[in-house]
Design a protein around this nucleic acid. Structure first.
Lengths: 337, 337
DNA sequence: ACATTTTTTGCAAACGATTGCGAAAACGAT
DNA sequence: ATCGTTTTCGCAATCGTTTGCAAAAAATGT
């Protein structure tokens, strides 16, 4: 009952009375090996269910066939969709995934990075944590020759492939929709402004107001992008409520939390106040009224990210130009706005 | 602009004019090395930001410090909570995670298993896919000396550590609650019966009926455990609806889908038909009426799973008895029942 | 000054695989 | 039988690290 050590190419060689190199070559159909020998060795390997040691291979090849993934919070539906999109393609191409969670924490993110670099992953896919405001940890990976692809929450300062949504446009479309149904006093529940994503959606919101001749009021822009934060700002929001007729929330769960607070205080959605979200997660059709929102295709974005990465990994020689792939947002109109 | 190969212990040795082994020993405070030399080597290593090659280490130690995780579907909130629980502790103990998705597919699960075995992970955490009905692939891992911990959806046939909920009790409590509020004709939307989880919750449901003198009717037990399936069975459910006054669904999203169908057809929940779910995910408080449900602690279950694993890995010699850790379900009463 | 002990260091094998190069075996041609 | 090819295979280095053992250097005792 001791540790059953998996058998190696060496064991096969010994048992078959040939050399290690012969076994190695036979198993990969090297022309130098006679077909007799090949057949014999392959049959035996099959019989004993030989499996090459990936660790040894990685060391030898200086390539781990592993891709690192840093996710702010895996429990968010958007991010877990991204994972699915990445995984499908990565496995198909023979890559494994090491997934790390930053938990929206800058420091944790840096540690994740270091872990992945230490593991000699071939590439890293990252979406920034909310608290990340400097980017040296990414430079280190790049200096080590590990390509990075940012998805969704990207670092402008770093040159790399990126997969984003056109968040400016998303914010614009969403706000425009509210305006088109008659809203004139629209609150924006915004993400942190040091995130591109937060800034862009907000700018889209502002642009829509401006181009429709509506005033942009700072007091109508609240930094508030989680359900919990909505609950904290409950009173503030209820103070605002009498004067407003629309809310553009930076994500669905924030929108939903807002709807619940409004409803509990006898505001009707959308009649008194229309609410629009961002993301189109599964919650959108559970709330009543069903949520009008901007679709954010997590699976597709994940897929695109890994595609960019694979393209780079499969052409190690070519110094491919960095590319930014941008997804166009689309509005899905339901009942809340 | 070629591939910048990270520097090794060998580079340090050369640059410092000492031997490789001296560097190795100095870096890990081996007593054989004079403190002078140690200080010098450590300082230099620090300066050039030396990082040991994890791959080489794993090969040498015959231990990858990596744990494999097989998840049926990462987008389910319960499972992503489990991941979080696992991750926190695993990283703290210096283990990395390779996460694979089976997508509820037996074949994919077997491939995942093989991948993890190939990577010489130190242990594997698994929750069965819905379609898994044989278990040889797990045997292979075990034969290779890789310990397995099953969580939530476990394989009875395999001897190993397990982390489960008392699903029988959960089904009983849920059903009892419906009965206690006056329901006499209760439908059960059940998971596949080859999963313990499905069988146990169903048995709990039956037990509650029986001990309350209610008849168990097979036609009131539907295999139906996703939102999509509810939609497919819509007409069937509406046929049942006039005769029933309660539904016990095997998970929240099924319960929610049922509520939506009932409401769209002018049944009141809970007045006409009470509905109870299972899981207590974030959706439970979004639906109106808010969902009465059984809490399923994903994070804690994940945490417990990795604990069992670490205990085993940290005592490789001791042949620790297999243990099954069972979580008690609790009922959280809201509005839907 | 020399033997003996102690401290400090280096050599080389090992982990499991790949691969350049040289050598043995087989074959054919003369 | 001899030589030249061609086919088939094995030696040994390599990837980055650890570690048993022996060797070199320094310290100690007489």
């Amino acid at each position: 009952m001791s540790k059953p050590t998996p058998l190696t190419i060496k064991d096969i060689a010994r048992n078959l009375g040939v050399s290690i190199s012969t076994v190695s070559r036979a198993l990969k159909d090297h022309p130098d090996i006679s077909s007799e020998t090949k057949i014999m060795i392959k049959a035996y390997a099959e019989e004993v269910n030989y499996r090459p040691n990936v660790l040894a291979l990685s060391l030898r090849r200086q390539k781990s066939n592993t891709i690192g993934l840093i996710i702010p919070a895996i429990v968010h539906h958007f991010f877990s969709s991204v994972i699915s999109g990445i995984e499908d393609l990565a496995y198909k191409e023979g890559y494994n995934l090491i997934i790390c969670q930053s938990n929206e924490n800058h420091h944790r993110e840096a540690i994740n990075l270091q872990t992945l670099v230490d593991h000699r992953v071939d590439g890293i896919l990252v979406s920034l944590s909310k608290t990340t405001q400097s980017f040296d940890h990414f430079r280190e990976a790049i200096d080590n020759g590990i390509p990075i692809v940012f998805y969704d929450r990207v670092a402008d300062e770093i040159e790399s492939d990126k997969v984003i949504m056109d968040d400016f446009e998303g914010g614009r479309i969403a706000t425009n929709h509210l305006i088109s149904r008659g809203c004139k006093n629209i609150v924006h529940l915004a993400a942190p402004q040091h995130l591109q994503i937060g800034k862009n959606r907000r700018n889209g919101y502002c642009e829509a107001l401006k181009s429709n001749g509506l005033e942009i009021r700072e007091d109508r822009i609240l930094k508030c992008d989680t359900r919990e934060e909505v609950m904290t700002l409950k009173n503030h929001m209820l103070n605002l409520a009498p004067e407003i007729d629309g809310i553009f929330a930076v994500n669905d769960s924030t929108a939903i939390a807002a709807i619940q607070i409004l409803q509990n205080n006898n505001y009707r959605v959308p009649e008194d106040i229309a609410v629009i979200g961002y993301g189109d997660g599964p919650n959108a059709t559970i709330i009543n009224p069903e949520l009008t929102t901007i679709v954010q295709k997590g699976y597709e974005m994940g897929r695109e990210s890994i595609k960019l990465m694979l393209r780079r990994l499969n052409n190690p020689a070519a110094d491919i130009n960095f590319q930014t792939k941008s997804f166009k947002p689309s509005l899905i109109i339901r009942q809340s706005a």
